[in-house]
Design a protein around this nucleic acid. Sequence first.
DNA 1: ATGACTGGCAGCGCCAGA
Length: 266
Amino acid sequence: MRLATWNVNSVRARLDRVLAWIDRSDVDVVALQETKCKDEQFPEQAFLDLGYEVAHHGLSQWNGVALVSRVGLEDVSTSFSADVPHFGEPAVAEARAIGATCGGVRVWSLYVPNGRGLDDPHYVYKLAWLQELRSAGAGWLAQDPRAQVALVGDFNVAPTDEDVWDVDFFAGATHVSEPERAEFGSLVDAGFADVVRPYAPGPGTYTYWDYTQLRFPKRQGMRIDFVLGSPALAERVSGATIDREERKGKGASDHAPVIVELAPNA
DNA sequence: ATGACTGGCAGCGCCAGA
């Protein structure tokens, strides 16, 4: 089974690219982030025409997550916990998570809050959101240590200095701060391994490149999109790739798709 | 060339992204 995650930065603005990529990439399950639309605006029929089912969770022009699958899409949930933090005044629920069982794997498409700045309320929200995700994930594994769970998406954290093109450039910024890295580390320690890294070693291996300043052709990016697998899922991983070809050309998302190959369940 | 931000929405600037 081939499982992918991709922050598409608007599914409507680049629907043709998204569909073409799915069609040629032979992926069974795709987790999308930043669809940037409400449910009623999501172009569901185009995915159905390709032979995929879709579950989308979008509440406004911001955020938005989806799961696209041709191997089943069951038990859809739009919240990994009853206590997912909300943001703003008044506090509003955001569309940053959707989970479903696809081909026997519990897949969560996640769009972790950006944080905006270290002194911004959004940063507090980001840390709380990650903490709640870790708590939920640890709970699932406590209930079933052999659970097949994939936490995938845009984590908006660069776990190590090697995961950004220039550490000094990001000094004092989000994505690289110790508290964020600690939360990401807690998720890994809870049993969710970065299953892509062994197949996509660094340095200089990224999943995101800013649209400005020629960051992509200069190979100045960040590694912030991940597939984190539970122990039982990680055992099945036989390969992984970051498709940086898809970052090229007119109309590309600023994130590249990340694909994981899973061996048949033993 | 892999190329000098982009998307959405209100409305022809502004916020958000990271």
